[in-house]
Design a protein around this nucleic acid. Structure first.
Lengths: 246, 246
DNA sequence: CGGCTGGTTGATTGGTTTCAACAAGCGTGG
DNA sequence: CCACGCTTGTTGAAACCAATCAACCAGCCG
């Protein structure tokens, strides 16, 4: 399997063979983090950037009353910087959903790399913009979309992002999250997620079974969700252009 | 009145007199944008960054069904880049709420400035982090906070951000937005905002009248909102440290 | 003064939560 | 091997929060 960070950055900007090799070299083999544990690295270089190489994680905030809000999902290829520059206390946590293979790019290495390659610099820049756009889109989902639209939009987003790193086929992708996680992400109870899922199934749009999502009608799903992949800022690739302006 | 961009960046990193003068020089006098119009600049340098020098604006998405979702408010001192690098179509719009005075920093000028001053570079970097944190906090608000908590949190956020640029007094600040705007931001109807406002007033926490917000009990308001100003990443300043870990 | 925008109120509807119970799948230890 | 406990998914009924619809009021401006 090719390096997901390379795949992801290439979805923004074409990279040279040298760029690819440099990236792979700098990230290293990574270390494992167990599922359902927090990804924290107290003693790490605060200017380093961690990268998900395999598995799923999420950013979340835990409230005292037990409620948990997931603010984004982190997929293979995603950089995660819970504490860049260690400004002050962390305002949120990053937790592994599945077992996660975590790479790390040291601050100096990152700086040297982007100074040498304008392509890589642009790619990292666009990655940051895309991440911000995803966060805005979540705000829009939670504020303006109905329960079923929200869930449909999340599935569209995750499928598109997984496809960008080669982890999704045309109509199916892994989905290793529980209905409880979905509820914590969508600001709803797992009970209601369950009912909404049944509605989506009943409409013949998706199947979600044994940690795998199948989208039977991508266009209808995107239309229902008001999903337009433009905000992900990925360059078009064959087989992934299905759901634009649907 | 001192330049709000300078004030804002100084809330992250102390700046030298040279930094300040350079910033003011580069931003220029700015141009006016009428209230209730969109801030767009088709022909502008796509690598330039616009900055709100006076007035309020907001990022929003307009849906075909008429619904509008505001995803953030832009206050004096805030950079706004609806189209950085013009990746593809814009995924959202920036609209002026009040009349807005808009400055602009050209791409080369910005690059030269941050290359020369590590302080300025760090300040812009932290500004971006803080903006991302604000966006996450909105996701949390819309997903996990009740109507009254949401509104309370927004008031805490706006007051803190205005205070950082010297536009708020201890317990009062301008609030030039309608209940309709509040509804579009909080994912609720203006009718319900109205009722929630009455509840906040009834609890003796705030007064909102003639475009001005007065917070009678900042600590109680922050506690109600689960507001902790840490996520804004501003360095502590006397008179603004009221609502941390409340 | 009329017309408009922004704010307020009441009654009804509907989407979600809550509470509670139960079924299915799975790993583990007796 | 099966029993057990635990997590995850599913279902039903009642309570509740917020949307909707529809008026009406106040202030402002041309």
């Amino acid at each position: 399997m090719s390096n997901p960070l390379v795949r992801k950055l290439e979805s923004y900007v074409p990279l040279s063979e040298a760029d690819r090799l440099c990236l792979i070299d700098v990230v290293g083999p990574g270390r494992m983090v167990a599922a359902r544990t927090d990804i924290i690295h107290e003693g790490d270089d605060p200017r380093a950037v961690s990268v998900i190489l395999d598995g799923w994680a999420c950013r979340y905030r835990q409230f005292i009353n037990g409620r948990r809000q997931i603010v984004s999902f982190l997929l293979p290829g995603d950089p995660c910087d819970p504490h860049v520059f260690l400004l002050d206390e962390m305002d949120h946590t990053i937790g592994a959903i599945t077992p996660v293979l975590l790479g790390q790019i040291s601050g100096p290495a990152l700086q040297a790399m982007t100074a040498r390659s304008p392509q890589l610099d642009l790619a990292f820049h666009r990655e940051a913009l895309a991440t911000a756009a995803v966060q805005r889109e979540w705000t829009i989902s939670l504020g303006s979309r109905t329960g079923i639209e929200r869930l449909a939009h999340l599935f569209c987003e995750l499928h598109a992002r997984l496809a960008a790193v080669g982890l999704a086929e045309a109509e199916t992708c892994p989905m290793p999250i529980t209905q409880n996680d979905l509820g914590d992400a969508m600001g709803q109870t797992s009970v209601h997620i369950n009912r909404t899922l049944q509605e989506l199934r009943g409409m013949g749009l998706i199947t979600l079974r044994s940690r795998r999502l199948t989208i039977h009608d991508p266009i209808a799903l995107a239309r229902l969700a008001h999903f337009d992949s433009a905000y992900l800022h990925m360059t078009e690739q064959p087989g992934r252009a299905v759901a634009r302006r649907a």
